[in-house]
Structures are given as C-alpha cells and as structure tokens.
Amino acid sequence: MIRVAVANQKGGVGKTTTAINLATALAAVGWKVLLIDLDPQGNASTGLGIGQSGREISSYDVLIGSAGVVEGAVATRVPRLELLPATMDLSGAEVELVSLEDRARRLERALDAVPSGRWDICLIDCPPSLGLLTVNGLVAARHLLVPLQCEFFALEGLSQLLQTVERIRLAFNPELQILGIALTMFDKRNNLSQQVADDVRACLGQAVFDTVVPRNVRLSEAPSHGLPALIYDLRCPGSEAYVRLARELMGRLPRHAEAA
C-alpha cells in the first residue's frame, strides 16, 4: 500500500480540500483508497459527510493502540473510498503520546498491520502543526505532498516544513520522499499569486506540480454539503484542477499500485 502524507503546518492552505479531492479522484479511476484524518478539527471527516455518530472508532483510538485501522475505517459516499475519521479526542493525543513507547511510530505500526491488498493507497491528512500527530503521519508515509497557498507567508512555512522533513528522514524514516508541491488558492487577478508561484518553481523546480488549483467558491461550498467538490460540482474550475492534479500524482507514484 502506497502511503502519502498531505502536510503543511500553516493552516488554511487547502490541505484537507486537496486530500479529499485527490482521494476521490483516485477512487474514481478504480483505486481502493483509505483517507486518514489526523486533524483534531476533523474537517476531512465532515467534508466526506461522516458525522459524529459515524466516528465510533477514530484515528485517536488507532494511535493509542485500542483499535486497528481496518476496524476503524468507515465507508463514504464515494465508492472505493474509506475514511479513518477524527474526533476531538485527538487534541489531547499529543500529551498522551509522549508517555507511550515509540510515540513517533504509532501510526506506522498500525498501517504495517493492515492486510496486504486491503487498500492500494493511503492518504494521511495531517493537522496544521509540526507536533507529534504530524510526525506520526510523516513517519508512517513514504511520500509527502505539500499543498502551498500562493501567498508570501506560505514560503516561510515551506522552509520550516522542509527542515522538519529532513529531521524525520535522519531520525525515523529515511525512505520519506517529497512527492510534490501543489500550488493552491491561486488568484489570477492577484500579481502576488503569480510571483509566489514563480518563486516556488524557481526554488524547487520539478518538485512543483504543473497543475495550479485556483481559488474557487465551489471548493469552499462542497464541505458544507458533506461532499467532495468532484461530486458536488465536477465542472467547476477547482474540480477540474484536482482531476488534472490527480493525473499528475498518479504519474509520480510507484507503478506497483494497480487499479482495482
């Protein structure tokens, strides 16, 4: 199973929107997909229409070892897409994990126990921080996708994240690779958006995906209906961009994940 962490410690960069819609696009082409919600806010769970009553077992239970990933995964409205939901219990997990053995490898060990062939790919939606929850996501993953908002402060956050990734590589996970940087919330009316996009491409070159996700109101509306934007409005500019981004993503992933 391919494991991709979707992470950026800066909030409001379109991270969860990216995770939900890429997971939907991959499921639509036949992949068996697991999306893990590691954010205490539970936005990925809400955005896929999983209410509190459908979160009996959550990623918190998996991290503390009281439940397994397969046991906690719930079906979504998207065929072949399952979700390990999040609850507010996660907000206390940072403190609880400190006293546990191998606290940085809790999620990795849980995913290692998943039977082979259960899912083709796992996307991990990390919280907007560089705490133990995000560390668990980065240690468990083999690939990192970074959504990056097209504004100045996003560049500062990116440098911090890249430093953290290097420390994770050295201490826990030498296999972690940056799959790509996805430029999000691009406003073509704003010169700064283009300038930031140009600067990121100049610094990181081929690591940056060609597809740029525009700022789009339909992407913002979709979660309130408990639907991915790709289902809420497939023809809006945001959804079309995520379809292209998913195609690029598949081109960068290892070939051993065949469509189901």
Rank of each mutant, 00 (worst) to 15 (best):
L35H: 13
N173Y: 10
L138S: 01
G226M: 11
S58E: 05
I178F: 14
E82D: 07
D233P: 06
L176K: 02
R106T: 00
Q194E: 04
Y60I: 11
L183R: 00
T46N: 06
V196P: 01
L132C: 05
L148E: 00
E166M: 09
V4I: 13
L100G: 05
S239I: 12
A73V: 08
V213Q: 01
V13C: 02
V196N: 00
G72S: 13
K32C: 05
T76H: 11
A202I: 14
L138G: 08
W119M: 10
G117P: 13
G205H: 04
I50V: 13
L161R: 01
L81D: 07
L123H: 00
L253M: 12
V98K: 07
C150S: 09
G157K: 05
L144Q: 04
R103T: 12
E96D: 15
M250C: 03
V70F: 14
A154F: 12
F153K: 00
D125K: 01
D125H: 07
K15R: 08
L138V: 11
I64F: 10
K32R: 12
R218K: 15
Q177M: 14
A86V: 09
L155F: 06
E101P: 00
L148V: 08
I36S: 03
L38V: 10
L145F: 04
P237N: 05
T134D: 12
L84F: 05
N43G: 06
G49V: 10
Y242G: 07
D199E: 13
A154C: 13
E151F: 03
H225W: 12
I231Y: 05
M185N: 06
M1T: 13
V98E: 06
A246M: 14
L130F: 01
S59F: 09
R169M: 14
L100R: 03
D198A: 11
E101Q: 09
L81F: 02
Q160P: 00
T76A: 13
Q194L: 09
L38K: 01
A207K: 04
L107D: 03
E258F: 04
N8K: 04
V6N: 00
G11H: 03
A110I: 15
Q149R: 02
A19M: 07
A229M: 10
N190P: 01
Q206C: 07
T164R: 06
L130A: 12
E248A: 15
E248Y: 02
L90M: 08
L145M: 14
L144T: 11
G51D: 15
D89P: 03
L132T: 02
V33L: 03
A113I: 08
K188I: 13
R244I: 15
V208R: 02
P174G: 12
G131Q: 05
L158M: 15
D102I: 11
S193Y: 02
D233A: 09
R218D: 08
D199H: 10
V212T: 08
V74D: 07
L249F: 00
W31N: 03
E156H: 14
C126Q: 05
E71A: 11
L34T: 10
L230T: 04
E101Y: 10
P128D: 14
I168C: 13
